[in-house]
Simulated assay, not measured.
Amino acid sequence: MRLPRPLPRRRRTQERRRAPRPMIHVSTSVIVAIDGSSASISALRHAKRFAEARKLRLRAVSVWSTVNTYTPFLPAGLPTEDATGLLAEVSREVFGDDLPDWYEQKAVKGSTVRALLRESRTAALLVLGSRGLGGFTGLLLGSVSAQCAAHANCPVMIIHEQNDAASLPADAPIVVGDDGSAGSNAALEWALQAAETFVAPVQIVRSWTIDRLPLQYEELGFNLSSEDVNTRVLHDLVTDTLNRIERHPTVRVTREAVMAHPVAELISRSQHARLLVVGSRGRGGFARLRLGSVGAESASYSHCPVVVVPPRANQNPNH
């Protein structure tokens, strides 16, 4: 069998020039999942505030299916009519009777996770309640929210029912969990952009423990004091974040290295925070931050909304 002759160099160059470039999605919408629970209503309020501040469109999505859960009672109407009516009712509760032209409602049939992940492909932010009803049953980061936070193309904001943005003091910070990974770099960039929008300070925290010393310190043994290690960790944190912070000169930033378990430290700081921002994947003190341990516990028990940022989030049109 004779192999085909290779293309002449000029023709190969022309073929490469004709090859389509990969599409880059520009994110212009905030997506919020609605199921009628109080947590999803709180999520819509936060999504509204974020979309207004960023001058983005807002889309409320209700996912319905004929096989969500077992019930011995027949539904009063068609599932699609129920979903549409639910969206209208929740929208009136948050916006009133006059809906803005930048807000839209969408009822979708199918798998909740698949529908929301599909929406995330061109979204600037996906907002979810921490607990849900019906299609969002068990939404304490066990099913839908965990999968969305781990696999969404955009940042995912998880809202608890008690989260009230209106009650926050003006100087409430945005707290970022940092470990120097690509995931935490993306989280820091998102937090700095949000801080510019909401005129909020940023606290960057790098956590370490004796049994989880940063890799570059292990070769030094355990002869260093905790003060020495903390100084080195803080020095590395400053070095790792300097260039990114300098690109946002209007944001007031503090950086802290702490000897503490990352979950306990993040949850403690969330009590007085505007937002807690983490990367979807991490290492070191924030290892396995794909909502398997640290991320899941932080998002479940945080006192403020949690934003999980993937390493390569969708493009933000404002930045």
Rank of each mutant, 00 (worst) to 15 (best):
V94D: 11
R252A: 13
N314F: 00
N68D: 15
G284K: 03
A260E: 15
R18G: 07
F222H: 14
N163P: 05
A313K: 11
R45S: 09
P100N: 08
V205Q: 11
A186T: 08
L213F: 06
N68I: 14
P75S: 12
P305N: 10
Q14E: 13
Y103H: 11
D35C: 03
A149C: 14
A115M: 05
A124Y: 04
S300Q: 13
L237C: 09
I158R: 05
H319F: 06
N185I: 03
S91N: 04
P8A: 12
P6F: 01
D240V: 02
T84L: 04
R244Q: 15
A124M: 01
K106A: 08
R5L: 10
K106V: 10
R5W: 05
G284R: 11
D178T: 00
L117E: 11
P4S: 06
A257E: 09
R244E: 15
R255T: 12
N68P: 00
A166E: 15
T250R: 12
K48V: 02
L86Y: 00
G177N: 08
A60R: 11
V113M: 05
K55R: 15
V67F: 09
L58I: 04
Q193V: 04
S62F: 01
G177I: 02
E52I: 03
A200Q: 10
G282P: 03
L126E: 07
P155K: 04
P169K: 06
R121T: 13
S302A: 15
C304K: 04
L87F: 06
N223T: 06
V258K: 12
N185Q: 14
E119R: 03
H303Y: 11
D236F: 00
D164L: 00
V309C: 08
N316R: 12
V308Y: 06
P20G: 09
L291I: 15
V108R: 10
S29C: 08
L117T: 12
P201M: 03
D236Q: 13
I159N: 05
R255G: 03
R131T: 10
F222Q: 12
A47S: 09
T209K: 05
G180I: 02
F50T: 14
D164M: 01
S268D: 14
S29H: 13
R2K: 07
A152P: 07
P201H: 02
G180T: 05
F50C: 08
T80F: 00
Y301D: 13
Q162V: 03
G221A: 03
L116H: 09
D35F: 01
G295N: 11
V263C: 09
V90C: 12
A43Q: 02
L140W: 08
N68M: 12
P155F: 02
G132P: 09
A195I: 05
L3H: 07
S226K: 03
I204L: 12
N314Q: 10
F198D: 14
H151G: 01
A53C: 07
N223D: 13
A19F: 07
V308D: 11
N243D: 15
V294Q: 07
H25I: 03
S280K: 07
A150N: 05
D101R: 02
A313L: 01
L78W: 04
E256R: 11
H46F: 02
L215N: 08
N68R: 05
R10G: 08
V251L: 06
S29W: 03
